[in-house]
Structure formats: structure tokens, C-alpha cells
Nucleic acid binder design. Sequence first.
DNA 1: ACCAAGTCTGGAACTTGTTCTAGATTAGCG
DNA 2: CGCTAATCTAGAACAAGTTCCAGACTTGGT
Lengths: 208, 208
Amino acid sequence: MTAEAKAAVPAAPPLTERQEARRRRILHASAQLASRGGFDAVQMREVAEAAGVALGTLYRYFPSKIHLLVATMQDQLQHLHGTLRKHPPSGTGSAERVAETLMRAFRALQREPHLADAMVRALTFADRSVSPEVDTVSRQTTAIILDAMGLDHPTPEQLSAVRVIEHTWHSALITWLSGRASIAQVKIDIETVCRLIDLTAPARDQRA
Amino acid sequence: MTAEAKAAVPAAPPLTERQEARRRRILHASAQLASRGGFDAVQMREVAEAAGVALGTLYRYFPSKIHLLVATMQDQLQHLHGTLRKHPPSGTGSAERVAETLMRAFRALQREPHLADAMVRALTFADRSVSPEVDTVSRQTTAIILDAMGLDHPTPEQLSAVRVIEHTWHSALITWLSGRASIAQVKIDIETVCRLIDLTAPARDQRA
DNA sequence: ACCAAGTCTGGAACTTGTTCTAGATTAGCG
DNA sequence: CGCTAATCTAGAACAAGTTCCAGACTTGGT
């Protein structure tokens, strides 16, 4: 919680070309299988086979199924962030733009609901041993939201609002994935929580 | 999502006394083991043994480990709701009272962090097959929050706010349990999201 | 008291995540 | 090139959730 900003993964031994390729094949196989049948369909033996790699090797690259799926999510988020940078949200207010961005991400997930299931379940099921990786995902998400808000130097209050938005985002996704909330409801929840942003705007109308 | 309010479990065959006792023993064993080592420590074979029941019987009562832990959570929530009814929050505003209530619940969880871990992880990991049970938990939570707000007939807008609060509550718990957020941060997040309540108050200062 | 249906028990068996081992391959280096 | 350490492979082995089964026990109805 204190001061270790920069690199969450201090020792990232440089991978050879073949190793990079293996890693990529594994992530691809993971996403592929996840797209078919969700979390349960990502079976370590199958991932290994599809990636053309021994089971032990798979575990050397990703020490658990959860690690693998969280890494898969990092991968997908990176894509998304790139896409969003190229086509920024069009709304005029911060709240609107954030809601628009999240809804766009949501629609992307709807196109691959099984993949979404695998990634989100892994993310919320992760225990302490996966904290660094999950934290990376969280930072990526935060960056996306701050981008949408157009903020470079958020106040602590605004960061709180962003954290709450992330909470809502993850949890709303889960209720949708498990069939307990409709798409429309997720939309409402996102729009509702985005109202918090205006509440923390540094400008006028502050009387608390 | 439409109109089937009353009983989520349509056919609850009346249990005999011995069956009720078995069920209670199982839930007790579950909570006991969870209190020790969290999610992983709740092993079905051990629960069965501790409850003095055959493995097959355990599975007849609770069709999966997740079902078992979600039921455990229902149980604990019931306690909590009872306690809260007897000692209502003292704040003057809705937002304050809800925040106070949730912080009180949070402190209760802090006393049994392993149990909290087991229940919350089960809750968010649950797939569609556990939807009815998870939904029950959700309704219990909603009821607790509405109680704190002192509302009997919430507007749709207020219900949205309550849903977002629940999202934040669950997700914040997870970040705390996995060591990615401090207790203080959870407190801040709860207080932040509770501000939404004032935003949806039916009274004055509505100009959007 | 007796029977049929349903329930419970003990235990084996199966599935999938994870670990371990022995031997082949590869990478870096003199 | 030839050596050494690291990495990779194939596959066995182990752990815990889940399923199945044969036989004993309960329950409810007659």
C-alpha cells in the first residue's frame, strides 16, 4: 500500500523467441477454449495439448488455472484499451463518457460470453497468490476509466469514485453472467454508479 | 425478472426432525471448518465426517460445495439481520445509516476472516446452477440495506442505488479478502458509494 | 406387525487441478 | 565443437470435488 509504484513484477527474465511463442500459444489456446465453454472448458490438460506443450511446461508459465485466466484477461484488456484509445467515447460529461466506455466494453464481452465468464470468474475467485496479477488488471481498468474521464491527476476523492465504479462493474458482470441480472439492468447499474463522478467533480455545488 | 415474488424454492419438502438436525449439523460443521481455514479448508469429506453424516447424504442436502457455502452464508446473514433489527443504526441520514450498518457487518466479518473468505468466494464463484440460492442472499442483503434506509416502498431509482451498493459491498470485500485493499479503503469505498443514496432522495435539489 | 418407498451409510470410482520424476532438448559459453 | 545448466516432454501420482452403488435403516400407510 506504500511506495512501490513502477514494476509489480520485479524479475521478468527475458524470454527467448521460442518461449515467447509458447506463451502466446498458451494464451491463445486458453482464450479459444474459454470462448467455447467458459471457465469449466478451460482444462489444463486441454490447454497444454492445444498449445502443443507439456503439462509441466504449462504450469511453469502459469502456476495455476487462475493465473492463466487472469493473464488471459490482461491480454484482452490490453486489446480493449488500444481500441478505446483509437475511438474515444463521444459524450460531453465525464460520467457520460465513462458509462459509454463501460457499455462498449460490456458489448464486447457480450460477443464472447463464455470467455467473459472464464475471465471474470477467475478474477473474483483469485486468492492472495494471484494478487499481483489481479492488481495489474485492476490498474488497467482504472487507466481505462481515467482515460474516459480525461483525467491525468485525479483527486483522492475521484479515485475513490473510480474504485467504486470498478467494484460495480465487476459485480454487475457477475450477476449478468450468472443469469441473475439482465443486460438492461447492468446498463442501469453502470449509469447509476457513474453519477458518482459528477458528485466528486472539483467544481461548483459543493456544500457538504 | 417478472412476477414470482414469494417463494424462490417452490417445492421444499417438509423435513423430519432428524433431517432438520442433520442439516443443522452440516451447516455448523461447514461454518466451523470455514472459520479455521477458509474456502479450501471446507472439504466435503471433512464436513461429512464432522457432521456425522455420509458423503452421499451431504450431497443430497447440498448438491455442491458452493451450494453448501452459500447456504452457510444465508444462515449467517439471518443472524446478522436479527442482530441489526435489535440494534438499529444511529445515524440521522439514510446514507449514514446504511454506511454504519455495512461497516458493522464488515467488522463482524473481520472477526472471522476465514469464514468470510469461504462465503464470499463461494458467492461470487457460483454459477447458474446456484442462482436461486445466490438470489436469496441478495434479497436478504437488499432487505438489510432497505431497513437501514428506513424505506418500505423504494422507488426504482433507489433500488438501483441499493443494487450498486451491494455490488460495491461484495467487490470491496473481495479486494479486502485477497489482500489488495486495506480495511480503511473498504470503509472509504462504502462511504463513497453510500453518497448515491442522497442523490436519489425523492426530495429537493433535483434539476437533471 | 408388515410392506414398499424413500433415505442413509460406507466405500469405491471417476474427474480435473496440481505436483513430481526421469530422461531428452536447448541455450549460453569457453 | 563440447560442456553445463536450464528448460521441455511424457507420463505417473496425488488431492479434493463429485458420482455411483449395494446394502442397512426409517417412515408412512395398511
